[in-house]
Design a protein around this nucleic acid. Sequence first.
DNA 1: ACATTAAGTGATT
DNA 2: AATCACTTAATGT
Length: 225
Amino acid sequence: MIIETTDILKILQKNFPNIAERALQEEIVEVGKVMSFRAGEIIMDFGSYIKMVPLIISGSIKVSREDDNEGKEMLLYFLGAGEACSMSFTCCMMNKKSEIRTEAVEDTTLIGIPIRYMDQWMSKYQSWKNFVMTSYDHKMIELVKVLDSVAFGGMDARLRKYLQSRAASTSSHVINATHQEIAKDLNASREAISRLLKKLENMGEVKLGRNQVRVLGETWSANIL
DNA sequence: ACATTAAGTGATT
DNA sequence: AATCACTTAATGT
């Protein structure tokens, strides 16, 4: 897929209206690289060095952290169009290895900004600084919510949160995933997820299909933070 | 039509 | 809520 630079500017303005300064927009178009990933591709794994900060244009990305002990991964949150990975900001400013893994959940395209621009843009552009702070803040709040649904809620609360944030990241009501995949993200058994989903379907909150969950009504979309 | 994979169910701990 | 042992349903070849 070939995208003209004039198109990149439009796409940028549409998806990131808060990055308002014209000079900044032009710089992003100038130095950014448009990259595409297929669903299921791992964009960045644990331990690799971050060289790009991603501005997501379309699609959906899962951000997870590796469990301290071994093996298991813990889901942190999903990112969708108009968002950037908050973790990458701090990670790359300290030139640290990635603590997280990012994986495309849907086919995803993003603009990758080389990290060397981070410092200068922070001081040079007010809207960049603001954008970084705001997305950082939003994800922090999101994380706290996930944390207490894990600590104090049951599986059904966790599943709801999961569906809600995953649907929101897709800006669609359709989630393409098997019950098994959802169960893995939540560290639960497939049967438990199947039963809870069934319950939600009976309550008229979702519609189930093979490899897909459709989220119904305003309960979910109206509930963005 | 057959094999494979996803999803539903009930029992047991 | 996990695991097991099935059954049933949907899909791919």
